[in-house]
Design a protein around this nucleic acid. Sequence first.
RNA 1: UGGGGCGUCGCCAAGCGGUAAGGCACUGGGUUUUGAUCCCAGCAUUCGUAGGUUCGAAUCCUGCCGCCCCAGCCA
Length: 561
Amino acid sequence: MEKSAPSHFIRQIIEQDLQAGKSGGRVHTRFPPEPNGYLHIGHAKSIVLNFGIAKAFQGQCNLRFDDTNPHKENIEFVDSIRQDVRWLGYDWQDRPYYASDYFQQLHDFAVELIKAGKAYVCDLDSERMRAYRGTLKEPGRESPYRSRSVEENLDLFARMKAGEFADGERVLRARIDMASPNMNLRDPTLYRIRHGVIHHQTGEAWCIYPMYDYTHPVSDALEGITHSLCTLEFEDHRPLYDWILDNISSPCHPRQIEFSRLNLEYTVLSKRKLTQLVEEGVVEGWSDPRMPTIAGLRRRGYTAASIREFCRRIGITKSDGLVEMGVLENCIRENLDAHAPRRMAVMHPLKLVIENYPEDGSESLTAPNHPKDESMGQRRIPFCREVYIDRADFREQANKKYKRLITGGEVRLRNAYVIKCEAVVKNNQGEIIELRCSYDPDTLGKNPQGRKVRGVIHWVSARHGVKGEVRLYDRLFSRADADRVEEGGRFTDNLNPDALRTLTDCYFEPMLAEAGTDEQYQFEREGYFILDGLEAGRERPVFNRIVTLRDSWAKIDQGGG
RNA sequence: UGGGGCGUCGCCAAGCGGUAAGGCACUGGGUUUUGAUCCCAGCAUUCGUAGGUUCGAAUCCUGCCGCCCCAGCCA
């Protein structure tokens, strides 16, 4: 079902490296999230890439927590990341890695750099350091502490580690080039002091924490990573990545390769913004079905296979683009069309009384679970004198394009009989409250003789249907480039107020009372749905709409049909 | 002349000097007890742009234009 991953520039580079005999023919990648939030679909792109490459080249991929900033991280995020990666279908063979596992080695390499005169302790505070750094167009100035002796640096670094200095008082810096046109090479900070935070892995063992730029190449090297794949914004950091490895006694020198991060229409994919949505209560949490997080997509009903397929389809390049939601939607539709059992549910109920059907009668009809896949079996659906249909499936009058029920017209009730609308019952306000119909008993499983009934609508027995709730989800933001803000505005100004619509007066065919949170259904003519994971077990079921069915009628209808 | 990247159909994306893959979207037509699915057909004489090299250029060279990233003791 899932096609093999297509070739892209990173695979080509790896193939060339392999042919050149690099790293002994070994391929080893890693997925290195910082546990400071939940994973989102942009991370899925990286996960599929890294684990996919490892598999394609019979190599390995490490799951590594880049946990060097305890301030922003916690164990809930660690756990959610493990769960999400596993759910996506990837296995790190019980070899979870933590950058914090290397704190001692990182420290020792830092001492090595100091001894080689490649790093020094700097007393500049952050404000002055910024001033010394220069600007994009002007070179920086050397710190007055840059020429401290090795002995003094060793002593100061040891005292930093011993907790003698307060946060911000001193840092360890690499001695590279304050005039470099690449800002990352202007004596970058390697270590900072952080007191009073409890690291989720190392507790209070350390009060100095290594920076990303220093930690990452070392962690990669220690794990024997051959290809370190990251996103484009780190391209400028590669010279520093290489500098670190060239100046310590590194066991190997992984190759960093950058690709463009995912941008998806009508949503945001930056952890900072997603965190904001959660913290401000704009959404229900990280797993809100409107969120582009893995947890949100899972609760929404997306399958892991559909997300993997999406990542395969969008490809890997260095050009930044904005992917249409339609691509993701098509992936889940394709996946669910093949596998989701069909059911009937009425979301905007309108009662329909079949006058020539016995008052107390009822019968059990048979319907296939899937129109094309007989192996999925059949189900029984109760039918009786009164059923609910959707209000959108009836119009008092309409032109020939409308093939649903109209006054005096015929339509087929899906999996049941052909009925005819004899009369419309309205209340004092003129609202339609009921339809009086007749049915043709000779149309069960066969078409009527001498006339053609074009329309088919779904229904639920009024007597047997299960009442419940449906949540209709739409795009979280109302503009495709959700990040774009007007002068003085915030990205939250772009939120779509109709991203969630709750329908509390829905009727489901009886089978749906037994639905579980692990199976998606197609509600015929409506879309794909799943029982909400957090509301499961309620007396009245709550279903989430994953995605609608493709709807060519909507276009015709709007276009003046 | 700060530095680093990127520009191929509405969106994504192959292409790697021999004459523009594919997917999504879209438009027609057919099948259909889901206006779904499925099927069939159509959809870039042109690769940001202007020159140059070549028998031949999206692919090589030069200029120009546009967009993205970088001045955290974040990652």
